[in-house]
Every structure is written in C-alpha cells, then in structure tokens.
Simulated assay, not measured.
Amino acid sequence: MFSAFTRLSLVTRIIIAIILGILAALLFPNAAPYLSLLGDLFIKALKSVAPILVFVLVLSSIANFKVGSSNAYIKPIILMYALGMLLAAFSAVISSVIFPSTLFLDVPAQGELTPPGSLAEILKNLLLSFVANPVTAISEANFIGILAWAVALGISFRHASDQTKTFLSDAADAVNKVIRLVISFAPFGIFGLVAVTFAEAGLSTLASYAHLLAVLLGTMLFVALVINPIMVAFMTRQNPYPLVFQCLRESGITAFFTRSSAANIPVNLDLAKRLGVPESTASVAIPLGATINMAGASVTITVLTLATVHTLGISVDFTTMLILSVVATISACGASGVAGGSLLLIPVACGLFGISSDIAMQVVAIGMVISVLQDSTETALNSSTDVLFTAAVDRGLR
C-alpha cells in the first residue's frame, strides 16, 4: 500500500493527505497535539532550507549567467507583480463598496503587537534590509538581504575561473536534491497541518465575521480566477486557465496549509522547472516574488481598512480610494518582512483616514480571529501568483 502511495503524483498524495487529515480531526480530535508535530517538522524543514536555497541558486545563476539568455525576462515579471498587486487592491476597493462590512470594534486591542509607524518606516526597513549582514540575513530568513548579497556575489563571481563556476553550479544541484527530498514529505506534513487546523479552529469561531470573511475570500478568488487569467492571457495570447489551475493546484494548495510564501519557494521552483522556465529566470523571479509579490496582502489591507472606515462612518471619495490602493500595494511589498504579515500593516493604511492606532489595532485583532482562512487563502494567492506570472512571461517572450 505504501509503495502504491509513493508511485502517485505529489498532488494526488497531497489531496489524499488533506482528506485523511480532515477525517483524523473529526474522529480523533484529541490527537491533534501529536499530529501537529508532522506539520511543524515540515514547515520547519522548508523554512530552514529556503534561505540557503535562494542564496545558492541566485548566486550560481548570476555567476553562470549568459548575456542575452534571460535578462529580458525579469523586468516584465516585476512589472506583472506590481500591476497584479495594484489591480488586486482596486478589486478590493470595488468589492468593499458593493458589499460594505461592519466590524465589532469592542474587541480587546492586541497591545503586544507593534505595527510600523508609517509608510516611510516600511520603506526604510526594506532599504536597510538590503545591507544586512549576510550571515544574519540567512539566519533570520531576511530574503531581501539574501537576494542583495547573492546578486552582489554572483556578479563578482562572473569573473571567476570556470572551475569556480562549476563548483557553484554543483552546489546549486546539491541543494536542489535536498529540496526534492524535503518536498517528498509534503503529504505527511500537510496531513498534520490539516488535522490540527480542523481539530482546533473549525469554522465556529469564524461565524461572527462571515460577511467580512466572504468579502476577503471572494475578492481573492476574483483576483485568482479573473484578474490573473486576464493578465496571463494578455502575456501569452493563449487560454490562461490550464496554467492558472495548475499553479493553484500544485502551488496554492501547499501554500494554503504552510501559510508561508518563503516556505513555498522550493515548491514553486520545482513547479517552474517542470513548466519549462529556465533556472536562471526562476531562481531570481520566484524568491523575488515571495518577497515583494503580495496581491493577497494588498486585498487584506484594503478590505479591512475600508471596513473600519465604513464602521466609523467616515466619508471616502474616489480619489482617496485610489490613493489607498497605491498605499496598500506599496505596504504589501513589506508584508513578508513584518511579524504578523499583512495584518500589522493595516494601521498604516488606516492612518490615511486619521484613524487612531488603538482602533486600528482592534481591527488587527479581528484579523487574527479570521486568519485561519484569511491568511491561508492570502498565502495561496500570493505564492501561486509568483510561479504563474513567471511562467506566463517565459511563455509569452518565447
């Protein structure tokens, strides 16, 4: 039986693991603390190898980079990242206007959380991350700093001997083998994650915020199934949905349960390789996307901010909503570097409307309540879009 299970595709094994995880949560809810070890080990393994993976692959790719091979690919990928986040924020504005949400702002504020003070502070932190100590950047999974050092060293190694470049390439292959080993255990990790999620949270705690959650998830689904396909179709001049559904199935499902774009980098790199994306492109675009491409975060920031504005009865004109979309897009780029992700960036957007930090932090607390589904769906959208746009640009330019 185990031999037959291992012969199945990874996606099929993950789907079986999800079903078994739900059954385990329903039949043996008291076993959740023990099953959580499987999920914790899987996420820990992914997070531990991701920084080394990004550093070695980017360094090796740039050091062995052939002029004219894929240097024209990165700019359009970054452009699609930026445009996708902006359109996601616009979609969140429209959905919030059509389906306004009302919050219960009597929940205790999370006093121990410390959000960034302003948009300028986020940009400052991002710039400072570029010059972080390389050892510290790897140990703390500071992917902006890792990318900066990998690019700098890669450019320097372009003038190295062929033997050195071969060593770097061999090192990248070795890390890839470790990654494939970790990914092979994905079904077991996801089994543990699903069992714990359904056993501990369920859906009962989300009932009081069903409308807000519906607006959030509905907008993210609209972005994933309408906005992204339109962009991909424009880029490839082909039916986008086979590629869209493959990315959602093979990247989005894993990201949904790991709830970490950084942890999903190995999964996306493996998928990009199978989609035919050159390693020199994927090894730069995928880690970069995990750092700055946060369409789901821009949706979360915009929807929760406008829900707060509606609850407080603040009048908002169209121009202010457009400015909010831009602020949410820029803020979302810093979500990966902030503890608590997109939720702790909500006070920055609330500052546009003069909403106090105390009230904004109560909104963050509400976000924590619904984060079981909100954060998982947000991460699935963020991470699957990384590989989707990378593959779309590769196919379009080819």
Rank of each mutant, 00 (worst) to 15 (best):
P187W: 11
L57K: 13
M235A: 14
V303C: 01
I138T: 00
F256W: 02
L57H: 13
S383W: 08
G21I: 01
I16A: 13
L352Q: 01
P108H: 13
I183D: 01
L20C: 07
A272H: 05
G117C: 00
L216D: 08
T197R: 11
R398V: 01
V151I: 13
S371H: 06
A160C: 01
S139Q: 04
P134E: 14
A233E: 07
M85E: 07
V277W: 04
Q110R: 14
L304S: 08
L203D: 06
F5H: 02
H211M: 12
Y34G: 15
I94C: 12
S325T: 08
S260F: 13
I301H: 05
G340V: 01
S61F: 06
A88R: 03
A328H: 00
M85A: 06
S357P: 07
V135F: 11
P134Q: 08
I74D: 02
T390W: 07
I144G: 06
Q110L: 14
P278C: 10
A24K: 01
L153Q: 10
L113R: 06
I183F: 03
L221R: 03
S371K: 09
I16P: 10
R13M: 01
T385D: 13
F90E: 02
G218M: 05
S48V: 12
F353Y: 05
V267D: 05
T197N: 09
L344F: 12
T166P: 12
C350P: 04
S69F: 11
A201Y: 10
A25I: 14
L37W: 05
A24V: 09
A171T: 15
A120N: 00
L312I: 04
L306T: 06
N228G: 15
I346N: 03
I286S: 06
M80R: 10
E121I: 00
K177Y: 14
A4Y: 10
A328P: 01
P266M: 05
G340S: 02
F55C: 01
A137I: 12
L221H: 03
S208R: 06
Y73T: 15
E112S: 15
